[in-house]
Design a protein around this nucleic acid. Sequence first.
RNA 1: CGGGGUGUAGCGUAGCCCGGUAUCGCGCCACAUUUGGGAUGUGGAGGUCGUCAGUUCGAAUCUGGCCACCCCGACCA
Length: 492
Amino acid sequence: MSKAITSQNTDYSKWYNDIVINANLADHSAVRGCMVIKPYGYAIWEKMQQTLDKMFKETGHVNAYFPLFVPKSLFEAEEKNAEGFAKECAIVTHYRLKTNPNEKGKLMVDPEAKLEEELIVRPTSEAIIWNTYKGWIQSYRDLPILVNQWANVVRWEMRTRLFLRTAEFLWQEGHTAHATKEEAIIETKKMLDVYANFVENWMAMPVVKGVKSANERFAGAEDTYTIEAMMQDGKALQAGTSHFLGQNFAKAFDVKFLTKENNLELVWATSWGVSTRLMGALIMSHSDDKGLVIPPKLAPIQVVIVPIHKGAEGLTKISNIVLPLKEKLEQKNITVKFDDDDAQRPGWKFAEYELKGVPVRIAIGERDLANGTVEIARRDELTKEIVSINELDIYIENLLINIQQNLLEKAKKRMTHFTTKVDSYQDFKKTLDEKGGFVLAHWDGTSETEEKIKEETKATIRCIPLNNTPEKGLCVYSGKESTQRVLFARAY
RNA sequence: CGGGGUGUAGCGUAGCCCGGUAUCGCGCCACAUUUGGGAUGUGGAGGUCGUCAGUUCGAAUCUGGCCACCCCGACCA
């Protein structure tokens, strides 16, 4: 009972924090705003990485690595991008410490060791990468460049939350260079689809694909595409973005290529990324008051087997049944843990693996040995049933698929529930306050209206959905004419 | 970065107002009995009271700086 989790209804933020800490995903560190990702949390991230990395490779991308530091002069080259990130940059100004003559055993910054030019710790890598691409690209034959990097970045946030917003975070950033605008736009949308596919089919979260409004657009982009997810508390979360960067960075870094026709032209660019923030999304999508719920495809442990026995001989009898079963499951690429640790009793283990979100639990005791059965508990529905041990591997295999689907179905229902069409500003505010979720409303297309709405309701335009059907209407705020509804929500 | 709150053993806490080196529960270690939903008994280990300085004969307790976390605002993936 030492690991009590605050219930979602009592305090959603506290619940979220309790899950992260108690399920051993991450911890606060000694560094302000930075977290320690613990082995169990990192194992989930690694599964995400592996899956995404494979998807990137399948779409023709290769990995590379660029420096953590960006010289200030490069950083400021693309003006809008630089301005957008200026307020949250960490800056290296010195390169050496020395012993403090006034305080024994202490170090101080050596004033002699000031850098000629400050180095910016990357908040994103467009600048350093496009400076590099300049040297890589001369002819249309050098294009496209389809590079991804797995890296850490630093954004000095005012307020941080584990996984959702930390000063340093892990992500991948794809940076591509193309000969034509069309090709770059196709790439931007393709990678958005990759993200949507991953989030829906691995994380079991439905998303709305869309384009950001000018206000919410990535600094330096022509267009920002996004996938927006809906959390259990009715708040939206941007799960991934893909940017069509136009020729902005090519201009800033003078990256030109010769076409087949021998004309010198500017290169077209995209960039796209998802981060450890996905961990936060995963938690807030499926988990409950008993702890974490992980979709089978991302679970570091998919099946845990808990023996219930009396004495050492009892355990041996059970192990004789369990070990071959474990092997059979592993042959089907199912990750199994047989927890035969005698220090904890079964009830404790049940609670522990529920807290950690293991999708399937198999309990096996004397009674089962006699009957040729096991008890199967599924984490998503918290139900239990007695199942014959014969062909259990096939049963489990199907159960995992079933749980994966069930989680997605539940999340889809939630998104449907949390999507409301409104036609007046009064309903708009009422829906946000009483129900939350996405609000589909007409908008006149101006930044001023968007800002006013944000000021008054804290809701932002999450995106203009890609699958929008045109529909004539009047802006809920200004009453001006509008051609389509856009997606508003309060967001993380 | 502004307003409010918190920091005592791995975790949760009492003590603080009214200064005299610390309470309880969980966890941990040993042994025994246990094992189908977070076991029980007995014995034991563990604390420079966030940190640095000040006041004092003496500081968890009073004062100040710093650090971290939580809540609310501005910023943001």
